[in-house]
Write a protein that binds this DNA or RNA. Structure first.
Lengths: 155, 155
DNA sequence: AGCAACCAAATTGTGCACAATATAATTGTG
DNA sequence: CACAATTATATTGTGCACAATTTGGTTGCT
């Protein structure tokens, strides 16, 4: 832990103005690569559940709070209807969710878990643990990553 | 800086088993969102260059080292030919790159910058600075992020 | 030389991701 | 009550991203 901190401080202190232009390139690209890496680590476990990563995110959201509108899902996952509508239709074909248009306001579509979708939660329970093992990362590192992203993203 | 470090240590110490189980979701989802956020911050600047973010990555790679094979680009950017071939064809139509099949080994395609592609480097020089301003993030935070991702990704 | 491995790109197919637009329903205002 | 503004979802079009397969070329082995 201490070594990491010393490393941060040294890196920051040693940075010259010249490097400033270069730095943002070297930061944004690794984030983009890491996101793809993470999804590829999920893949073997999610394959067993017949879910893609974005579909898994929808299931996580619904397991936490069943019956949500497309809009609510989109806000929580930062996805628009152009992405969610076809994705949810594929999940409906697999019978993990049902899409029911509201009778009160017919513009609204409610997305709910089917029994099969609810049951899948048990099978998915081991995914986080398996993932952590597969990524082979320490809790400390993950926590640092989580905190720094939270700080940067909250803008 | 010191506050952040104290915060990490406290967070790690205070974590409960229940939180540990969901740590992967608390990290992986934010990474996925941050990657999308960064690309959306690039968009207004890259629109002015008539480049998408993955196309910009190809240009960065070629500006650093002109004339590379599809394979070399794919390794540096972690993209396969199914992604790169159509992407490079679109960049060829825009006349930023040329694709020339090797005469020595006709399986190999060399990708080079056109004059227009080389000239674009001047116009792109201000992108990193503009992006930093648009994201409104400190160099210290970016450095921490970069270091922790480098540590996690190198596996 | 002949032929099996191997290799580099391209192709095909599925699934996001998002901008722009369309459609239809609801709400607010005079 | 009419009607403009707003809202929620769907649709369309473009561009990745990656797995699986194909095509054609090269290399190594006997």
């Amino acid at each position: 832990m201490h070594n990491i901190i010393v490393c941060y401080i040294c890196t920051v202190k040693l940075m010259q103005m010249k490097d400033l232009l270069h730095l943002s390139e070297q930061v944004c690209f690794p984030v983009y690569v890491l996101a793809k890496e993470i999804i590829s680590h999920y893949k073997p476990f999610l394959d067993g559940l017949d879910l893609t990563y974005p579909q898994y995110l929808v299931m996580l959201t619904l397991w936490e709070n069943d019956k949500q509108t497309v809009n609510e899902l989109g806000e929580k996952l930062t996805l628009d209807s152009g992405t969610l509508t076809p994705l949810l239709k594929r999940m409906e074909v697999k019978e993990f969710v049902s899409r029911i248009r509201s009778s009160k306001d017919e513009r609204v579509v409610h997305v709910s878990l089917t029994d099969k979708g609810k049951l899948l939660k048990e099978k998915a329970a081991c995914v986080p643990g398996q993932l952590m093992e597969s990524m082979n990362v320490s809790i400390e590192d993950l926590t640092i990553l989580k905190n720094i992203i939270t700080k940067i993203s909250k803008k």
